[in-house]
């Protein structure tokens, strides 16, 4: 089981901010395909330029295993200040 979080415009596109996926897919890329499978707009937004991922609150690069992972976040380009 993995908790999936969307931030910024990704949450607006999806119409949700948090959901649980159970069982958790084996990898981050499989999770991304799964949550975008029934929502082409979200799939496109997740594949957009500058979208970052954090796995258990650590920024990830490339595909990673979700074995024992509790939380995955998809984050569009960041803008503070």
């Amino acid at each position: 089981m993995v908790r999936v979080l969307l931030f910024g415009r990704l949450a607006d596109v999806a119409g949700w901010r948090e959901r649980t996926v159970d069982p958790a897919p084996a990898t981050l890329s499989a999770l991304q395909r799964l949550i975008g499978a029934d929502d082409p707009q979200l799939a496109e937004a997740l594949a957009g330029v500058g979208v970052r991922t954090a796995v258990d609150q650590v920024l990830s690069r490339g595909d990673v295993s979700l074995d024992a992972v509790k939380e995955v976040a998809f984050m569009p380009p960041m803008s503070g200040g």
């Binding site: 380009p77 960041m78 503070g80």
Partner: peptide
């Protein structure tokens, strides 16, 4: 720090 906060810190602004 401000340059970092503007574009690299995890905030989203609407």
């Amino acid at each position: 720090l401000m340059d970092y906060l503007k574009s690299r810190a995890p905030f989203w602004k609407k």
